[in-house]
Amino acid sequence: MPDSVTRRRTWSLPRQPGLVLSAVLLAAVLLAAVAPGVFTGQDPITGVPAERLRAPSPAHLFGTDETGRDVFARVVHGASLSLRATVLAVLVALVAGAAIGLLAGFRGGWLDAVVMRVVDVLQAVPAILLSLAVVTALGFGTTNVAIAVGVSNLAAFARLMRAEVLRVRSSVFVESARASGVRWPGVLARHVLPNAAGPVLVLATLTFGTAVLEVSALSFLGFGATPPTPEWGALVAGGRNFLATAWWMTTLPGLTVAAVVLATNRLSRALDGERSELR
């Protein structure tokens, strides 16, 4: 998705440094998730006891932790797990939410009423609590955290998809397609879905940022991967006991999370703006 944005916007790129920076950062993080070796050669799991709690330096960009592990290496290696959880969470929310919304919007009637009341309730319980409930039931671990975050974001997708389906369904061009004799399945596949998909995908990019935050929050609380496997939220939590002496252990991993969220939000805003310009 970032590709299509940059390609279509090439002419205005110099005027949007923030957007370029965001795209570059996200590309780097994705690369780190796939091939962490590109960024660091240091071991994220076993440290060098002699180099405990070193401040950031050229040798250790983000400093070292209490067992002498390079914090930058742990952040880079943590990208894989943290991003995988985020992507899974967004997929769960997108697929399940969109399917529910599509069904409710297209079938209408009592099914719509029941489904939307359930969605109302899902939104009445704050997202973190909802995912904590799912974690309580399913148990800990990165995958369960991802599913929990996905479930807690599902309602927004269902609601948007339903609204989009209803909007497109009641639009004049869909009626004119019906009046020209197109059957409902054709209307759904050729008119409703392509026109409803855009806003839903924009929401997906926006949810990506939220999901990074929620996944790392649950990981911070200790419900994610078991140590010493690096995960962004857990890294920040690990530095809590050294707040007074080793600021880098909390500040720099947290900054990474913040930067990723900012970059995705910037990109999704650009996507959203492009959509509304096209309209």
Binding site: S216, A217, V236, T251, G254, A258, V261
Partner: peptide
């Protein structure tokens, strides 16, 4: 403000 992880903000404030 929306993009900052609140657990991190809290720790920064403490620092």
């Amino acid at each position: 403000g929306i993009s900052l992880p609140s657990f991190w903000v809290g720790l920064l404030l403490i620092q």
